[in-house]
Simulated scan of single mutants.
Amino acid sequence: MDLSTIAGIMVGIGLIVLSVFLSAVQPDIYLNMPGLLIVIGGTIAATLVSFPTHELTKVFRVLGNAFRSHEYSIQDDISEIAHAARLRRHGDLARIEDQLERIPNPFLKTAIQLVIDNTPTDEIVNILQWRIKRLREQERAEAHIFHVMSVYAPAFGMFGTLVGMVNMLFGINGPDMLNVGHNMAVALMTTLYGLILSNLIFKPIAIKLERRTEKRAMIMRMIVEGTIMLAGNRSPVFIRETLKSFSAHHDDELRRGSSSTGADELEQPGRRASKQQRNLDDDF
Protein backbone atom coordinates (compact mmCIF):
# COMPACT_ATOMS: atom_id res chain seq x y z
CA MET A 1 0.00 0.00 0.00
CA ASP A 2 1.08 3.56 -0.71
CA LEU A 3 1.20 5.11 2.74
CA SER A 4 1.53 8.67 1.45
CA THR A 5 -1.83 8.52 -0.35
CA ILE A 6 -3.65 6.97 2.59
CA ALA A 7 -1.95 9.23 5.14
CA GLY A 8 -2.65 12.36 3.09
CA ILE A 9 -6.36 11.62 2.75
CA MET A 10 -6.70 10.57 6.39
CA VAL A 11 -4.85 13.65 7.66
CA GLY A 12 -6.94 15.92 5.44
CA ILE A 13 -10.23 14.39 6.59
CA GLY A 14 -9.03 14.40 10.19
CA LEU A 15 -8.17 18.09 10.10
CA ILE A 16 -11.53 18.93 8.56
CA VAL A 17 -13.41 16.90 11.17
CA LEU A 18 -11.31 18.40 13.98
CA SER A 19 -11.95 21.94 12.76
CA VAL A 20 -15.68 21.22 12.63
CA PHE A 21 -15.77 19.90 16.20
CA LEU A 22 -13.70 22.80 17.48
CA SER A 23 -15.74 25.51 15.76
CA ALA A 24 -19.31 24.22 15.48
CA VAL A 25 -21.89 24.36 18.23
CA GLN A 26 -23.69 21.43 16.62
CA PRO A 27 -21.24 19.42 14.46
CA ASP A 28 -23.89 17.15 12.93
CA ILE A 29 -25.17 20.05 10.84
CA TYR A 30 -22.21 19.42 8.54
CA LEU A 31 -23.75 16.11 7.52
CA ASN A 32 -26.15 17.18 4.80
CA MET A 33 -27.40 14.31 2.66
CA PRO A 34 -29.20 16.40 -0.02
CA GLY A 35 -26.03 18.42 -0.62
CA LEU A 36 -23.86 15.31 -0.71
CA LEU A 37 -26.18 13.63 -3.20
CA ILE A 38 -26.14 16.69 -5.45
CA VAL A 39 -22.33 16.83 -5.56
CA ILE A 40 -21.55 13.10 -5.82
CA GLY A 41 -24.48 12.26 -8.08
CA GLY A 42 -23.91 15.23 -10.36
CA THR A 43 -20.16 14.54 -10.64
CA ILE A 44 -20.75 10.88 -11.50
CA ALA A 45 -23.49 11.73 -14.00
CA ALA A 46 -21.38 14.36 -15.78
CA THR A 47 -18.41 11.99 -15.90
CA LEU A 48 -20.61 9.29 -17.46
CA VAL A 49 -21.65 11.77 -20.15
CA SER A 50 -18.07 12.92 -20.77
CA PHE A 51 -16.36 9.55 -21.32
CA PRO A 52 -17.22 6.32 -23.13
CA THR A 53 -18.07 3.29 -21.04
CA HIS A 54 -14.91 1.32 -21.84
CA GLU A 55 -12.78 4.13 -20.41
CA LEU A 56 -14.85 4.48 -17.26
CA THR A 57 -14.55 0.77 -16.49
CA LYS A 58 -10.85 1.39 -15.87
CA VAL A 59 -11.51 3.99 -13.17
CA PHE A 60 -11.74 1.52 -10.30
CA ARG A 61 -8.55 -0.26 -11.41
CA VAL A 62 -6.73 3.04 -11.76
CA LEU A 63 -8.09 4.22 -8.40
CA GLY A 64 -6.67 1.06 -6.83
CA ASN A 65 -3.28 1.80 -8.39
CA ALA A 66 -3.21 5.17 -6.64
CA PHE A 67 -3.34 3.38 -3.29
CA ARG A 68 -0.70 0.80 -4.17
CA SER A 69 3.01 1.29 -3.70
CA HIS A 70 4.87 1.29 -7.03
CA GLU A 71 8.62 0.96 -6.64
CA TYR A 72 10.34 0.99 -10.01
CA SER A 73 13.97 0.06 -9.52
CA ILE A 74 16.22 0.51 -12.53
CA GLN A 75 19.05 -1.44 -10.91
CA ASP A 76 17.62 -4.85 -11.80
CA ASP A 77 17.02 -3.74 -15.38
CA ILE A 78 20.58 -2.40 -15.63
CA SER A 79 21.92 -5.74 -14.42
CA GLU A 80 19.80 -7.63 -16.97
CA ILE A 81 21.05 -5.44 -19.85
CA ALA A 82 24.68 -5.74 -18.73
CA HIS A 83 24.33 -9.52 -18.38
CA ALA A 84 22.80 -9.78 -21.86
CA ALA A 85 25.69 -7.68 -23.23
CA ARG A 86 28.22 -10.02 -21.63
CA LEU A 87 26.52 -13.10 -23.09
CA ARG A 88 26.17 -11.47 -26.51
CA ARG A 89 29.87 -10.62 -26.62
CA HIS A 90 30.61 -14.28 -25.96
CA GLY A 91 28.14 -15.35 -28.63
CA ASP A 92 26.01 -17.25 -26.13
CA LEU A 93 22.57 -16.47 -27.58
CA ALA A 94 21.02 -19.61 -26.07
CA ARG A 95 21.67 -18.35 -22.55
CA ILE A 96 20.18 -14.98 -23.48
CA GLU A 97 17.01 -16.82 -24.52
CA ASP A 98 16.96 -18.50 -21.12
CA GLN A 99 17.52 -15.13 -19.46
CA LEU A 100 14.49 -13.67 -21.25
CA GLU A 101 12.21 -16.19 -19.57
CA ARG A 102 13.21 -14.86 -16.15
CA ILE A 103 12.88 -11.12 -16.91
CA PRO A 104 9.69 -9.78 -15.28
CA ASN A 105 9.72 -6.45 -17.15
CA PRO A 106 7.87 -6.98 -20.47
CA PHE A 107 9.29 -3.78 -21.98
CA LEU A 108 12.87 -4.86 -21.26
CA LYS A 109 12.14 -8.38 -22.47
CA THR A 110 10.89 -7.03 -25.80
CA ALA A 111 13.93 -4.76 -26.13
CA ILE A 112 16.46 -7.57 -25.60
CA GLN A 113 14.50 -9.91 -27.86
CA LEU A 114 14.64 -7.37 -30.69
CA VAL A 115 18.41 -7.06 -30.24
CA ILE A 116 19.12 -10.81 -30.36
CA ASP A 117 16.83 -11.06 -33.41
CA ASN A 118 19.27 -8.67 -35.16
CA THR A 119 16.59 -6.04 -35.69
CA PRO A 120 18.08 -2.78 -37.04
CA THR A 121 18.73 -0.25 -34.30
CA ASP A 122 16.49 2.40 -35.87
CA GLU A 123 13.58 -0.03 -35.93
CA ILE A 124 14.22 -1.04 -32.32
CA VAL A 125 14.15 2.58 -31.22
CA ASN A 126 10.96 3.27 -33.18
CA ILE A 127 9.18 0.25 -31.69
CA LEU A 128 10.21 1.05 -28.14
CA GLN A 129 9.45 4.76 -28.49
CA TRP A 130 6.00 3.88 -29.83
CA ARG A 131 5.36 1.71 -26.76
CA ILE A 132 6.44 4.54 -24.46
CA LYS A 133 4.14 6.95 -26.29
CA ARG A 134 1.23 4.52 -26.06
CA LEU A 135 1.81 4.04 -22.33
CA ARG A 136 1.89 7.78 -21.67
CA GLU A 137 -1.23 8.45 -23.73
CA GLN A 138 -3.17 5.64 -22.09
CA GLU A 139 -2.25 6.55 -18.52
CA ARG A 140 -2.67 10.27 -19.11
CA ALA A 141 -6.19 9.55 -20.35
CA GLU A 142 -6.86 7.65 -17.13
CA ALA A 143 -5.54 10.52 -15.00
CA HIS A 144 -7.56 12.97 -17.11
CA ILE A 145 -10.78 11.38 -15.84
CA PHE A 146 -9.91 12.42 -12.29
CA HIS A 147 -8.91 15.91 -13.47
CA VAL A 148 -12.34 16.26 -15.07
CA MET A 149 -14.05 15.02 -11.90
CA SER A 150 -12.09 17.60 -9.90
CA VAL A 151 -13.66 20.28 -12.11
CA TYR A 152 -17.20 18.88 -11.97
CA ALA A 153 -17.32 18.50 -8.17
CA PRO A 154 -17.05 22.25 -7.33
CA ALA A 155 -19.37 23.05 -10.24
CA PHE A 156 -22.11 20.85 -8.82
CA GLY A 157 -21.32 22.30 -5.42
CA MET A 158 -22.26 25.68 -6.86
CA PHE A 159 -25.34 24.11 -8.42
CA GLY A 160 -26.40 22.87 -4.98
CA THR A 161 -25.76 26.33 -3.60
CA LEU A 162 -28.12 27.83 -6.17
CA VAL A 163 -30.77 25.23 -5.40
CA GLY A 164 -30.53 25.97 -1.69
CA MET A 165 -30.61 29.74 -2.26
CA VAL A 166 -33.70 29.50 -4.48
CA ASN A 167 -35.53 27.39 -1.91
CA MET A 168 -34.42 29.72 0.88
CA LEU A 169 -35.61 32.86 -0.92
CA PHE A 170 -38.91 31.20 -1.83
CA GLY A 171 -39.67 30.42 1.80
CA ILE A 172 -38.14 33.46 3.46
CA ASN A 173 -41.53 35.14 3.91
CA GLY A 174 -43.16 31.99 5.23
CA PRO A 175 -43.94 31.25 8.87
CA ASP A 176 -41.52 28.34 9.18
CA MET A 177 -38.02 29.74 9.55
CA LEU A 178 -36.59 26.24 10.09
CA ASN A 179 -36.95 25.58 6.37
CA VAL A 180 -34.96 28.72 5.67
CA GLY A 181 -32.10 27.48 7.81
CA HIS A 182 -32.27 24.02 6.23
CA ASN A 183 -32.11 25.44 2.71
CA MET A 184 -29.27 27.73 3.69
CA ALA A 185 -27.35 24.70 5.03
CA VAL A 186 -27.86 22.88 1.71
CA ALA A 187 -26.65 25.96 -0.14
CA LEU A 188 -23.40 26.23 1.82
CA MET A 189 -22.64 22.54 2.41
CA THR A 190 -22.77 21.56 -1.26
CA THR A 191 -20.02 24.08 -2.03
CA LEU A 192 -17.98 22.69 0.87
CA TYR A 193 -18.45 19.09 -0.29
CA GLY A 194 -17.47 19.99 -3.85
CA LEU A 195 -14.26 21.70 -2.74
CA ILE A 196 -13.28 18.83 -0.46
CA LEU A 197 -13.84 16.15 -3.11
CA SER A 198 -12.03 18.18 -5.75
CA ASN A 199 -8.97 19.24 -3.79
CA LEU A 200 -8.54 16.34 -1.39
CA ILE A 201 -9.55 13.34 -3.54
CA PHE A 202 -9.83 13.81 -7.29
CA LYS A 203 -7.07 16.29 -8.11
CA PRO A 204 -4.38 14.71 -5.86
CA ILE A 205 -5.11 11.27 -7.31
CA ALA A 206 -4.78 12.65 -10.86
CA ILE A 207 -1.45 14.27 -10.01
CA LYS A 208 -0.16 11.07 -8.39
CA LEU A 209 -1.10 9.03 -11.45
CA GLU A 210 0.65 11.51 -13.75
CA ARG A 211 3.80 11.43 -11.61
CA ARG A 212 3.81 7.65 -11.72
CA THR A 213 3.47 7.71 -15.51
CA GLU A 214 6.35 10.16 -15.93
CA LYS A 215 8.58 8.06 -13.69
CA ARG A 216 7.79 4.90 -15.64
CA ALA A 217 8.36 6.70 -18.95
CA MET A 218 11.76 7.96 -17.82
CA ILE A 219 12.83 4.48 -16.73
CA MET A 220 11.68 3.14 -20.09
CA ARG A 221 13.73 5.81 -21.84
CA MET A 222 16.77 4.64 -19.90
CA ILE A 223 16.07 1.08 -21.04
CA VAL A 224 15.95 2.36 -24.62
CA GLU A 225 19.40 3.92 -24.15
CA GLY A 226 20.69 0.65 -22.72
CA THR A 227 19.19 -1.28 -25.63
CA ILE A 228 20.93 0.99 -28.14
CA MET A 229 24.26 0.31 -26.42
CA LEU A 230 23.48 -3.41 -26.31
CA ALA A 231 22.72 -3.42 -30.04
CA GLY A 232 26.00 -1.57 -30.62
CA ASN A 233 27.84 -4.40 -28.83
CA ARG A 234 29.18 -2.10 -26.14
CA SER A 235 30.90 -3.60 -23.11
CA PRO A 236 28.90 -4.61 -20.01
CA VAL A 237 30.98 -2.26 -17.86
CA PHE A 238 30.30 0.71 -20.13
CA ILE A 239 26.56 -0.05 -20.27
CA ARG A 240 26.31 -0.49 -16.52
CA GLU A 241 28.17 2.72 -15.66
CA THR A 242 26.33 4.82 -18.25
CA LEU A 243 22.91 3.65 -17.11
CA LYS A 244 23.86 4.16 -13.49
CA SER A 245 24.58 7.80 -14.30
CA PHE A 246 21.09 8.06 -15.78
CA SER A 247 19.61 6.41 -12.70
CA ALA A 248 21.41 8.83 -10.39
CA HIS A 249 19.80 11.83 -12.10
CA HIS A 250 16.32 10.66 -13.01
CA ASP A 251 14.78 11.46 -9.61
CA ASP A 252 16.24 14.95 -9.79
CA GLU A 253 14.73 15.45 -13.25
CA LEU A 254 11.33 14.38 -11.95
CA ARG A 255 11.54 16.82 -9.04
CA ARG A 256 12.20 19.65 -11.48
CA GLY A 257 8.89 18.89 -13.16
CA SER A 258 10.43 18.98 -16.65
CA SER A 259 9.67 15.43 -17.63
CA SER A 260 9.66 15.95 -21.38
CA THR A 261 12.77 18.09 -21.34
CA GLY A 262 14.51 15.78 -18.90
CA ALA A 263 13.67 12.78 -21.06
CA ASP A 264 15.11 14.48 -24.15
CA GLU A 265 18.23 15.39 -22.23
CA LEU A 266 18.81 11.76 -21.40
CA GLU A 267 19.97 11.17 -24.94
CA GLN A 268 22.69 13.80 -24.85
CA PRO A 269 24.70 12.51 -21.85
CA GLY A 270 24.64 9.06 -23.42
CA ARG A 271 26.23 10.37 -26.63
CA ARG A 272 28.81 12.41 -24.74
CA ALA A 273 29.64 9.49 -22.50
CA SER A 274 30.01 7.26 -25.57
CA LYS A 275 32.73 9.51 -26.96
CA GLN A 276 34.51 9.93 -23.63
CA GLN A 277 34.46 6.24 -22.76
CA ARG A 278 35.28 4.79 -26.20
CA ASN A 279 38.84 3.92 -25.29
CA LEU A 280 37.72 2.34 -22.02
CA ASP A 281 35.08 0.36 -23.89
CA ASP A 282 37.68 -1.15 -26.22
CA ASP A 283 39.49 -2.66 -23.24
CA PHE A 284 36.62 -5.03 -22.38
Rank of each mutant, 00 (worst) to 15 (best):
M1F: 13
D2S: 12
L3M: 13
G8F: 13
G12D: 02
I16V: 14
V20I: 15
A24N: 03
A24V: 02
V25R: 14
P27D: 00
D28L: 08
Y30G: 00
L31T: 01
I38T: 09
G41S: 10
A46N: 03
L48P: 03
F51A: 04
P52L: 00
H54M: 02
T57P: 00
K58C: 00
F60R: 02
N65D: 09
N65I: 00
I78M: 13
I81D: 09
H83T: 12
H90I: 01
D92K: 15
D92N: 15
E97V: 08
E101K: 15
R102N: 11
P106L: 02
Q113I: 01
D122H: 10
Q129T: 08
W130K: 11
E137K: 14
A141R: 13
E142M: 07
E142D: 13
A143D: 01
I145Y: 09
V148A: 05
F156E: 05
G157F: 12
V166G: 04
M168C: 07
F170V: 11
F170P: 00
G174V: 04
P175W: 03
D176Q: 11
V180Y: 07
A185D: 04
I196S: 02
I196F: 10
S198R: 00
P204N: 03
E214K: 14
M229A: 13
N233S: 14
N233L: 13
I239V: 12
S245V: 11
H249S: 14
D251N: 15
E265C: 02
E265V: 01
Q268L: 12
P269I: 08
P269Q: 06
G270A: 14
A273W: 14
D283M: 15
